[in-house]
Amino acid sequence: MTIHKEGYTTIALTVLFIFILNAFIDYKFGDLAVLRWIFYVLTFALFVIVLQFFRNPKREFNRNDAAVISPADGKVVVIEETEEGEYFKDKRLQVSIFMSPINVHINRYPVSGTVKFFKYHPGKYLAAWNPKSSTENERTTTVVETANGTPVLFRQIAGALARRIVWYVKEDDKATQTQEFGFIKFGSRVDLFFPIGTKVKVELGQVVKGGITEIADLV
């Protein structure tokens, strides 16, 4: 397992914070060994939490041009018909994946093709399970058109803890299924939108793996 490049600065700042805090505790409470060890344990736990958040585990990816592969680790929290008002402007089948702080937060292309649309939206930081987060939170919208002409829209959505969405996408890019297209820090959600009638291959509450789990068949 390696550490994702998006974590280098955060990890360095965390180490600096821990060093300063522990130095202050040693100076202020040098004669209270129990208190000092409590702080040592707590700051070590903080370091481990931040480190695991940015982990980049090695995986054998599942590429299948006839399927949409999960763009993220997490749990399926929404499978429903809804109005998609930004790009398609019609009714679509939405599948949402909630990424908790303990999940790997790398985002991967769910399909191969050409990026036909991309837009970043600044916004709020409502809890990721709030229905309004899809339209009011900080987010990005990406549409990839596959080789057979099927457009697949997916959306990175910041959560209550997330304060930065990272993307490596621009229009006319060539997208390769399972390759990284972005990262969301500290809790978030990814939505996918399919044509009505698409065969979904996951269930509500199911845990999925980015780059591995098949979400739906391509129409």
Rank of each mutant, 00 (worst) to 15 (best):
W129H: 15
E214G: 04
L192C: 05
R63V: 15
H121D: 03
I97Y: 00
K75E: 13
L153K: 12
I79A: 03
T198K: 05
R92Q: 10
I79T: 01
L21I: 11
F44P: 00
G210Q: 04
T198D: 02
T213L: 06
K174L: 08
I18G: 05
P101I: 13
L51W: 14
E136S: 05
D90G: 13
I79S: 00
F117W: 10
E86Y: 15
Y109F: 15
F194W: 02
Y168M: 12
F39C: 03
R36N: 06
Y40W: 14
T140Y: 02
A23K: 15
A12H: 06
G149P: 02
G182L: 01
E214T: 10
E84C: 02
E171D: 04
K58S: 13
T140I: 07
V76R: 13
I38D: 01
E83V: 13
A127H: 12
G123N: 03
F181T: 10
T10I: 07
I165Q: 06
K124W: 01
E145F: 02
F54S: 06
I212M: 09
K170E: 14
M1C: 01
K116Q: 14
R63A: 14
D90E: 15
V219N: 13
L126Q: 03
P71M: 04
F98A: 13
F193S: 09
I20V: 15
E203R: 09
F54W: 01
Q177A: 02
P122D: 11
S96P: 00
V41E: 01
Y8S: 15
T178Y: 08
T43W: 14
Y8W: 03
F154Y: 12
Q206N: 08
A158G: 13
N56Q: 11
L126Y: 08
L42D: 00
Y8E: 14
H105N: 07
A45I: 13
G85R: 11
M99T: 02
G149L: 07
T43S: 10
Y27E: 06
E203M: 09
V190T: 05
I3W: 05
T82S: 04
L13E: 07
I69C: 03
M1P: 08
A66Y: 10
K116G: 11
A45G: 10
D26F: 13
V152L: 10
M99E: 00
E138C: 14
V144I: 11
T14S: 12
T140G: 09
R155E: 05
D90V: 11
G30D: 07
I157T: 04
V68H: 04
L126H: 04
E80S: 14
D173N: 13
E84L: 05
F44K: 00
F154H: 09
S134R: 13
Y87R: 07
P122C: 06
G113H: 11
S188V: 03
P131W: 10
F47N: 00
Y125H: 14
R63N: 10
